[in-house]
């Protein structure tokens, strides 16, 4: 840390050396000292202004995280406390059938929900990127659901929509469906949460929209001159130019999907009803911690999630190196 400000100060001492005379050691050193003193003061002021945030992060994020990492090596119980058990929690997890259920449900959700949500948001973003009258209204209207989608109220409405004799059941029954409401049917119950995710595509849509606006029009004009079809333009211009934005959205949505909790908990409860079919990984963590009071074991669960999401992120960044095209980078 202390090295970088003095290195940064180097160019400032440049004019002294350029004055014609050979650089005098003392002057140069003094300038460097003064400059780093000023920098030091600024830095202190900077950190002072940041204290509320720093305290918040230390007390509310880093502290509890470190504590939970410690807990994951104990058999901590809410009242009784706990003892160090080493890796026992971690080895127990891999013999826990509920762990594999929770992983399966979560992966299934990530694999279904993320692509559908991203494709839907890209399609809508392409519609909304056109210059038409009243476009501002439509953009706001399509963005709106994402503001409320994670709320308790919407989850309760969702539950009602997908119950027996609810909207979905009646609508689908008209086409010969006899599976009842999704709410009570473990085969399809996860679709409720997928649809909730797709319905709330506002955030990636806005980012796609911004990305689409950035694609230079002359590329399309050139393609038009060459007689390219709409599909070719999409595949060879839009997608490559959009790839950094696509990468960002895929990453954010995947990481977010792994952590889905609120709606799943409200719709399926802490048992992941019906029949464990909505037992998301985070729901399992919650019920271990707050129904069973096995805080140590739940912490170990939580850290495995951190690890898994970390690995997924790294893999994505690796893949991005080959798949993502950044405009302006030559030779790529």
């Amino acid at each position: 840390m202390s090295a970088s400000p003095s290195t940064a100060a180097e160019p400032k001492s440049g004019p002294v050396g350029d004055a014609g005379a050979p650089p005098v050691r003392g002057t140069r050193g003094a300038a460097k000292r003064r400059s780093s003193a000023v920098r030091g003061g600024e830095r202190l002021a900077g950190y002072t202004f940041m204290t509320p945030w720093l305290i918040g992060t230390a007390v509310l994020t880093i502290g509890p995280m470190a504590w939970s990492l410690y807990l994951s090596f104990t058999d901590y119980h809410l009242i009784r406390g706990g003892d160090w058990v080493g890796m026992a929690n971690y080895t127990a997890i891999f013999e826990d059938p509920m762990f594999f259920r929770a992983v399966r449900v979560t992966l299934l959700y990530v694999v279904i929900a993320v692509p559908i949500k991203l494709v839907a948001s890209l399609l809508v973003a392409m519609l909304l990127s056109q210059q038409r009258r009243g476009m501002g209204f439509y953009r706001a209207a399509f963005y709106m659901p994402s503001l409320i989608a994670m709320s308790v109220g919407v989850a309760l409405i969702w539950k009602a929509l997908f119950s027996n004799d609810g909207t979905q059941d009646r609508f689908m029954s008209a086409f010969g469906w006899d599976g009842g409401g999704f709410l009570g049917n473990p085969e399809v119950s996860i679709l409720m949460l997928v649809l909730l995710a797709v319905w709330s595509f506002g955030a990636p849509m806005v980012i796609f929209l911004a990305g689409l606006m950035q694609v230079p029009q002359e590329l399309y004009e050139a393609a038009d001159v060459d007689g390219a079809s709409k599909w070719r333009k999409f595949v060879h211009i839009t997608l490559p130019m959009l790839s950094p934005v696509i990468f960002f959205n895929v990453l954010m949505e995947t990481v977010g999907a792994f952590q889905l909790f609120g709606p799943a908990y409200i719709i399926g409860g802490d048992a992941g009803a019906p029949a464990w079919s909505t037992l998301f990984y985070t729901v399992r963590i919650y019920s271990l911690a707050f129904t069973d009071f096995r805080m140590g074991y739940a912490s170990a669960y939580a850290w495995l999630l951190v690890l898994a999401v970390g690995i997924v992120t790294i893999v994505m960044f690796r893949a991005a190196g080959r798949l993502v095209f950044y405009a302006g980078e030559d030779g790529r």
């Binding site: 473990p186 029949a275 464990w276 069973d292 009071f293």
Partner: peptide, 19 residues
């Protein structure tokens, strides 16, 4: 007991669903 009672119902539900 509180947790065991919950598990009892939860696991029997798997039987009812045929899971």
């Amino acid at each position: 007991t509180g947790s065991i009672e919950v598990k009892f119902g939860e696991i029997y539900q798997q039987v009812q669903y045929g899971e």
